[in-house]
Nucleic acid binder design. Structure first.
Length: 465
RNA sequence: UCCGGAGUGGCUCAAUGGUAGAGCAGUCGGCUGUUAACCGACGGGUUACAAGUUCGAAUCUUGUCUCCGGAGCCA
């Protein structure tokens, strides 16, 4: 007999009564009735909801006396989908046979049928996907990833894989993880320094902090490209918005100026939120109920209004004249602090804000210098509550200006020979931005700590699995 | 890394110098087309760790570790 195909809970719950269904999943809870049957709630991850199994104790193949059918057990249930006699669900499965694949000892199984804090779940991160919250987060995360690819492919962008092991340092700053096969207890040395010519690649290598510079190479040939991959920062950041390993999306577009870049950023974010609102309704309603009471309101607000666009100078002016007290004072030339960004997005405009044309002194060398010689065509997209989600710019496409900026920032032009070549031969105006995928998931789900929106979070002193 | 807060049964929390408790979970029993089921009983803690103050410390002091919130860095 051919293997019976599994019916997902998601499909069954929307289905009409019919015979011969197979449910396979994990038991969330079981309620016994002395009327001679049990109610078993099974979840298979296909959706937030469980399906209710009615299991009569007289069933010959009701094997739960062989292995205890407890919360956390994994089961296969053959049966019939029937209209439910109880309230709370329209259909349920009348079991014909139940097989317990793996039981779970209720005395030690860490997930009880009760509320658990996300902090506690982090301690049992191999079991937390079996909870409503983490399951819902991962479904939304998946949908967002799918939409990212769809958005760009629909618009003629090519998905580009930039190197994970790299020898280039995107900004001449930012701590990087070193990649080496040298014996750390006894590395080869030359003049007292570690001799990397004997290392695997014959030179010092690191994990990438950004694929942007490499993406520019391909944008200068294929016009529209995007990366979507893991990124690594060895910063000792201990916050609810930072990870040492995170996923970043970086589109890079030839012939886009800063305005085009901002247009794309807004269209991109609104597309993603709209798509999730449409396709992850159940999960979002759950978040709206349990995590953030204003989540749906916020998302709907963001997709239905244009983002505010504010030059840096005007932002400074606005912050200077407000009566709002800040911990950090504001003056032209300084970096905007988190409190300033939040004030603008939450208090002044009450929607996403794009700040652009930052002072060149506080931005990296590759951003295009404006005619004023003081500002660069940079832009940051700030979301209410979350803060910065996107950072981007029009890139400097003039060879001489770029060379000047590299020297100004005390970087070595030789290291950037290939990057300068892109301006030397067939240079084109181009722009791009980077979006932190986990921050996107945070904003979409309302989950406050970034460690709860990635399956295996890596933070300082933490790398399980 | 800096600032602040917190570590008490499996989980969420009480007890603020004087006998460590509750709810949930678990076990047992009862009841029930139940649905975060309900009712009753029972078991379960070297109060993160180390040192100190005190007649007496979960409580006060110091150090260490861990977690949470905020800041910086950024995405």
């Amino acid at each position: 007999m051919a293997k019976k195909k599994r019916d997902t809970v998601k499909v069954l719950l929307a289905d009409q009564p019919r015979e011969g269904v197979l449910v396979q999943g994990w038991v969330r809870t079981r309620r016994d009735s002395k009327g001679g049957f049990s109610f078993i709630e099974v979840n298979d991850g296909s959706c937030l909801k469980n399906i209710q199994i009615i299991a009569e104790h007289k069933l010959d193949s009701f094997k739960y006396w062989n292995k205890p059918l407890t919360t956390g057990s994994c089961v296969s249930v053959h049966g019939n989908l029937v209209a439910s006699e109880g309230k709370g669900q329209s259909v349920e499965v009348q079991a014909v046979s139940i097989e317990v694949h793996g039981s779970a000892d209720p005395e030690t199984y860490p997930l009880q049928k009760k509320f658990h804090s996300l902090e506690y779940l982090r301690e049992i991160s191999h079991l937390r996907p079996r909870t409503n919250t983490i399951g819902a987060v991962m479904r939304v995360r998946n949908r967002l990833a799918y939409s990212v690819h769809r958005f760009f492919n629909d618009r003629g962008f090519l998905y580009l894989n930039t190197p994970i092991i790299t020898t280039s340092d995107c900004e001449g700053a930012g701590e990087m993880f070193q990649v080496t096969t040298l014996d750390m207890t006894n590395p080869p040395k030359n003049d007292g320094k570690i001799d990397y010519s004997e290392d695997f690649f014959g030179k010092q290598t690191s994990l990438t902090v950004s694929g942007q510079l490499e993406a520019e190479i391909y944008a200068m040939a294929l016009s529209l490209v995007y990366t979507f991959g893991p990124t690594f920062r060895a910063e000792n950041s201990n916050t609810s918005r930072h990870l040492a390993e995170f996923w970043m999306i970086e589109p890079e577009m030839a012939f886009y100026d800063l305005d085009d870049n901002m247009d794309l950023a807004q269209e991109f974010l609104q597309f993603l939120f709209n798509d999730v609102l449409e396709h992850c309704t159940g999960d979002l309603e759950f978040f709206n109920q349990r995590i953030d009471k204003h989540l749906l309101e916020t998302l709907n607000q963001v997709v239905s209004h244009d983002f505010e666009r504010l030059p840096y100078s005007e932002a400074i002016h606005l912050l200077e004249k407000t009566s709002q007290k800040f911990e950090y004072s504001v003056e032209w030339g300084c970096n905007l602090q988190a409190e300033h960004e939040r004030y603008l997005a939450e208090k002044v405009f009450k929607k996403p804000v794009i700040i652009y044309n930052y002072p060149e002194t506080i931005k990296p060398f590759y951003m295009k210098l404006n005619e004023d010689g003081e500002t660069v065509r940079a832009m940051d997209v700030l979301l209410p509550k979350l803060g910065e989600i996107i950072g981007g710019s029009q890139r400097e496409d003039d060879y001489d200006t770029l060379m000047k900026r590299i020297k100004q920032k005390e970087l070595d032009p030789e290291e950037y020979g290939w990057y300068l070549d892109l301006r030397k031969y067939g240079s084109a105006p181009h722009s791009g931005f980077g979006l932190g995928f986990e921050r996107l998931v945070q904003f979409t789900t309302g989950v406050e700590n970034i460690r709860d929106v990635i399956p295996f979070p890596r933070t300082p002193k933490h790398a399980g699995f």
